[in-house]
Design a protein around this nucleic acid. Sequence first.
DNA 1: CGAGGTCTTGAAGACGATCAACAAACGTGG
DNA 2: CCACGTTTGTTGATCGTCTTCAAGACCTCG
Lengths: 246, 246
Amino acid sequence: MMHHDRVHALNPLVSSLLVRDRLTPEEIEAVFALPFQVKTFTRDQTMVREMEQLHFSCVLLDGVAGRAIYADKGRQLTAIHVAGDWIDLHGFLLKKLDHNIVALSPCSIALISHRALIGISEEFPHLTRVLWLSTLVDAAIHRQQLTNIGRRNPIEAMVHLACEIYVRRKSVGLDAGPTFPLPLTQNDLADLFGLSLVHISRTLRELRALPFIQWGQGIVTLTSFDEAAAFAGFSPDYLNLFEQPR
Amino acid sequence: MMHHDRVHALNPLVSSLLVRDRLTPEEIEAVFALPFQVKTFTRDQTMVREMEQLHFSCVLLDGVAGRAIYADKGRQLTAIHVAGDWIDLHGFLLKKLDHNIVALSPCSIALISHRALIGISEEFPHLTRVLWLSTLVDAAIHRQQLTNIGRRNPIEAMVHLACEIYVRRKSVGLDAGPTFPLPLTQNDLADLFGLSLVHISRTLRELRALPFIQWGQGIVTLTSFDEAAAFAGFSPDYLNLFEQPR
DNA sequence: CGAGGTCTTGAAGACGATCAACAAACGTGG
DNA sequence: CCACGTTTGTTGATCGTCTTCAAGACCTCG
């Protein structure tokens, strides 16, 4: 039985925690009791700027966000995030981010003060471990993206990404069927995979010839997730989507 | 004033924590009081295997270790680790790793039971946050490696790596001068940067023409760190090497 | 001394970048 | 509702980077 069955902005966040471990009613209450402030952004706005002293962390309530590092040769997107992701939990302890968080679609976020998070970490050691865990999964996602760029070819890498987003969205209950929105421009994809815009366009054309996936207009359909996963070498293990005492 | 000025195997670990925040004598004592068991490995041995249920985490006491993911096209090394790194702190909460940890040189590690870590996290919330922080820095290192592979050219990427290892080793007091060991084979470097062995060989030849860096026989000398950093676009910010309340 | 691992070099070809032109989609204001 | 400009996506041609294959040098350790 869940407390707060009512619609609450932080519901997807709590779902994402419950996927990985049971929480006590008190712990769930503690999360829902976090005071927050909602802020919205339009596409391409920077939501959190690198090297800024931070006093708030943000949970993505709606939209798609990305982590961006700017190098000489252009922008590198190191990860993309969907609703429910506590995108900026890193900032709680890092105090200054090493990268920018940008809105890749219109976004709304909940800002939660670090002071409140200190409170959680002092009072709820187990809940703290589950939050910690969620940042460890972010690192695992980075490792898969490294493998995508370093050791998978572009078309496999893109299918791998689609599989990952599909599973991540499913795990927090965002979609029912095989179709989900992924409103990234080809420019975004180029920066995500370290390729040129032109090459992404050609790779997408190739990808559209595959029978088990449709990708266009910012919408992806995995007509056969299993075939897609086999094609891309995707295994959901790294997302750590199993309930276990932490 | 430090407790335990005597030589203790976990000294580099404690140094690496103290770089980022003050710890109370009780917190330091709690770390030094962790029971551990030392294990040694030869080059190329797998120290932690992916998907194995874990009950211990390991701190690297000596040697160089790497995180490896195996894909169709070969191995991807996502990070390399030096003495003092709590390489396997992830495993404490993930319970199963998504990758292998391999010895890239002869290594010795200290195994620390998850039970003991639970104890720390229940009793020492602030120390827990500092440990959490160290895993967040690992993620930041992954992001830089993504930028290396995706948006820097190979020679810049390799100089960036040299700068990073130089700063990381300095920060835990491993070296005095501009020279440090980096016993990676060209094969390891290829897997780290997602390139072929042959191309690494040629890139190293180019790199050896640079005046501010020497790299050969597994030994790197940064005759001018500043020039190297400027060349590679390296800034140590992401390593979060500043003392601050967490 | 021989064997295996490591490194170097050359040559050929695949892959992806860049430049350039154009098409399609979208949003805005007239 | 259309006209227009801007953003996004497509295609072709050329060029540079990196891979692959192959051969040989070097090195270390039994």
